[in-house]
Computed example of a mutant assay.
Amino acid sequence: MTSTAGSKAPTDPSEPRHRVPRFTRAERLVHRATAVLMLLCVGTAACLYFSPLAQLVGRRHLVESVHQWTGVLLPAPYLLGLASSAFRADLRRLNRWARYDNEWMRAVRKGWTSPALRPAGKFNAGQKIYAGWIAGAVPIMMFTGLLMWFAGLLPGISRTSAIFVHDVTALAIAVVLLGHMRLAYRDPQARGGMRTGSVERAWAKREHSKWLEDEH
């Protein structure tokens, strides 16, 4: 939830550098825990599938065990986060597609970079699509992973089919995750918001104007 495209423009010096709260401690902990588990899953998968990495790391049984258990634990931060009202409110925002989200998507497709042409709430349309995609991909990975782990769990589904779906989905997740990390790297304000819980008002006005209007 940290990356926001098109945010490399410098802060307007005429804007006051007041900060506005963006994420609570609970939300930041959910994000960090999920990120650690996801990176462990991707890293151990790479060690299992690519021979040079497998030979470099060794201890295949340990790597396989870490991969399996991090995959099982991946939904845990999300489930624990449901105890936070702020986290639940953000889930509702991510699940709500507003009319201005269509404007944001149209601006991205046409390459428009002006913030006035790319309105966004607390989360822009790209972040909503990313969150929805990950929310759908993780259960698929867990289901197919369990079918591989416990062979014969569902006799009607072959292990070969489960491996194919698991591998293809894993590759897609790795590509999307790299894109997410790249956008986050390009936007220090967004990263700072997830690290400290607050962002500069000028940045919020530029990148998430609807959120600033509605809530601040």
Rank of each mutant, 00 (worst) to 15 (best):
T2A: 15
S3F: 08
T4K: 15
A5Y: 09
A5C: 11
A5S: 13
S7H: 08
T11S: 08
H18G: 15
V20Q: 05
V20T: 10
P21L: 02
P21E: 03
F23Q: 08
T24L: 01
R25Y: 04
A26H: 14
A26N: 15
A26T: 15
E27L: 02
R32P: 13
A33L: 12
A33Q: 12
A33R: 06
T34N: 11
M38Y: 06
L40Y: 12
V42G: 08
V42K: 10
A45E: 11
Y49F: 03
Y49N: 07
F50A: 06
F50Q: 07
P52L: 09
A54Y: 06
A54T: 08
A54S: 13
L56H: 00
R60N: 00
L62A: 04
L62R: 09
Q68N: 07
L73E: 03
L73G: 03
P75H: 05
L79F: 14
G81V: 01
G81K: 01
A89D: 00
D90R: 05
R92F: 12
R93W: 14
N95V: 12
N95K: 05
R96E: 14
W97V: 15
A98Q: 13
A98W: 12
R99S: 13
D101H: 08
D101R: 09
E103N: 00
E103W: 12
W104D: 02
W104Y: 04
M105L: 06
M105R: 03
R106C: 00
V108M: 15
V108C: 13
A116C: 14
R118I: 01
A120I: 10
N124T: 02
A125V: 05
G126N: 11
G126H: 06
Q127T: 00
K128D: 05
K128H: 04
K128W: 05
K128M: 07
I129L: 11
Y130Q: 11
A137S: 07
A137I: 00
P139F: 08
P139E: 11
I140W: 13
M141Q: 14
F143P: 07
T144H: 13
G145I: 01
L147Y: 02
G152K: 07
L154S: 13
L154Y: 12
G156T: 09
G156V: 10
I157Q: 01
S158D: 09
R159H: 00
F164E: 14
V165F: 00
H166I: 06
H166T: 03
H166V: 02
H166R: 06
D167S: 04
D167K: 03
L171E: 05
L171M: 10
A172Y: 09
I173R: 02
A174H: 08
V175H: 07
V176I: 08
L178C: 14
L178Y: 15
H180N: 13
M181N: 10
R182D: 15
A184M: 15
D187N: 03
P188E: 08
A190G: 15
G192C: 05
M194N: 09
G197R: 05
R201I: 00
E207Q: 07
E207F: 02
E207P: 01
S209I: 01
W211A: 09
E213V: 05
